[in-house]
Design a protein around this nucleic acid. Structure first.
Lengths: 245, 245
DNA sequence: GCCAGTGCACTTGTATGCAAGTATGCTGAT
DNA sequence: ATCAGCATACTTGCATACAAGTGCACTGGC
């Protein structure tokens, strides 16, 4: 076989590369198509499937021990989300990280999160207990250097802000466009100092929310949202094949 | 206008062979799956497929003169977008208009459009020539009472605001969440007076943009975004079967 | 050595067959 | 008349077979 580098793990992690975990076929309480979709999304987000990697329906099917049908349905949804590109009769590739898409995701996220912050401040004192708890989880992840746990708690914290605003669905809208940005953050994640900064920013945002200080919130969220992006140039220099305009 | 034939006016009337788009089986430049998807999206948006209508893969397949496979892929993408709901081994239905989803779509749209407005004002005097042209098209649609043309020009105008902001992709993000709201507007659209109000509001927004009056833009866009929603209660009273919380 | 041409291997797109689950309506008994 | 039980038709999920197009490598000729 030629370049079978479709399932490289994280480019920076030296751990043994585990590809896609096979989806067990059998009595399905959940649909196989959904499992394949979830598996592919997480694989792309976690860069186990690197940008530009060529996918093959038949290859994925036998790798996941399913037929092509559910794989095709999952790929159709992924193509709809812009995570993969399908060229008929030619092939399917994992989409590259588009810097323009990343910048637009930043715009969407910053705008909506600031708006959610403002709405959350409008009522009386918002309940920040869940946010405090998530901050604790992040601190724990920082101490144990568990990047995956931090990543999950990070997601949950920003989602909680939308919950407090009363528009939890808006967070789903953000996440759709944010997938490009997530991959960027994955590249920079194994940096303990950067995680320290992010947690501190999170705490400041939570403090501002508790004080219903809208002006501070706007500034903090804006700066926080632009944090990941400012590293894009150096990351592109390090992984040029993963990026595009 | 390229208004295709409605293939399902109402779920109860299962008339014979309501001709679909002439989908020639076999030789196809565009993928059958995509054509089916586009057809279904427009049918749902234009309420030719009413909320709650039950769909059947086999029925759609023979109606469109294709096999179930492309229909299934289209439905999978539609389910991902929240336009249809698939219950395994039970059936597929067009999603109801969720008032909560509508309100969240309003939030997303208002937030992003205001942000785009602000960014578009940041530079020097923005080029509003395209917007003026779209306003003229809307006036023409108003005079000829061509609601479909007005709907299209309305879409284009709001999209142009995002173009001027430099974040055209954000408009795509809005449109995804806005589908619920579009159906609501379809219900209220055949009202000439309402169209008159909308056009006037559009003109005010364009004026504010040309004058780079951010404060006015915020107020105008906010009011404009809430315009469609304020009719939701009466619409729900009129079409109770189409709505849900 | 180089280039043109061709065949093959691989890709995705589509159609069809089969399996499993659910709702419905009919039938028979009480 | 009413209700329990069952057969049947209909639904979606999955696997497989076939079709069509593309790129590439190999081969033959120059």
């Amino acid at each position: 076989m030629s370049s079978r580098q479709a399932f490289i793990p994280h480019p920076a992690s030296a751990g043994p590369g585990q590809g896609l975990s096979p989806v067990v076929r059998g009595r399905a309480v959940t649909r196989t198509s959904d499992r394949v979709y979830d598996e592919l999304v997480s694989a792309i987000r976690e860069l186990r499937l690197v940008p530009g990697a060529s996918l093959s329906e038949t290859d994925l099917a036998e790798r996941l021990h399913v037929s092509r049908t559910p794989v095709r349905e999952a790929l159709a949804r992924l193509a709809d989300a812009g995570l993969v590109h399908v060229v008929p009769q030619v092939g399917t590739r994992v989409g590259l990280i588009g810097l323009r898409d990343v910048e637009e995701a930043r715009f969407v996220r910053e705008s909506l999160e600031i708006s959610a912050f403002e709405v959350a401040c409008e009522g009386s004192a918002p309940d920040v207990s869940t946010l405090r708890e998530l901050l604790e989880r992040q601190e724990h992840s920082y101490r144990t250097e568990d990047y995956n746990a931090f990543f999950a708690a990070d997601e949950a914290l920003h989602g909680e802000i939308f919950n407090l605003s009363g528009y939890p669905g808006a967070w789903q809208a953000v996440q759709r466009t944010k997938l490009q940005l997530d991959r960027l953050r994955r590249l920079v994640l194994p940096d303990l100092a950067a995680v320290r900064v992010l947690i501190d920013e999170h705490r400041s945002i939570v403090d501002a929310l508790e004080a219903t200080d809208i002006a501070a919130g706007r500034t903090l969220i804006s700066r926080h949202a632009r944090r990941a992006i400012e590293l894009a140039p150096s990351l592109r220099a390090r992984y040029p094949d993963y990026f595009t305009d």
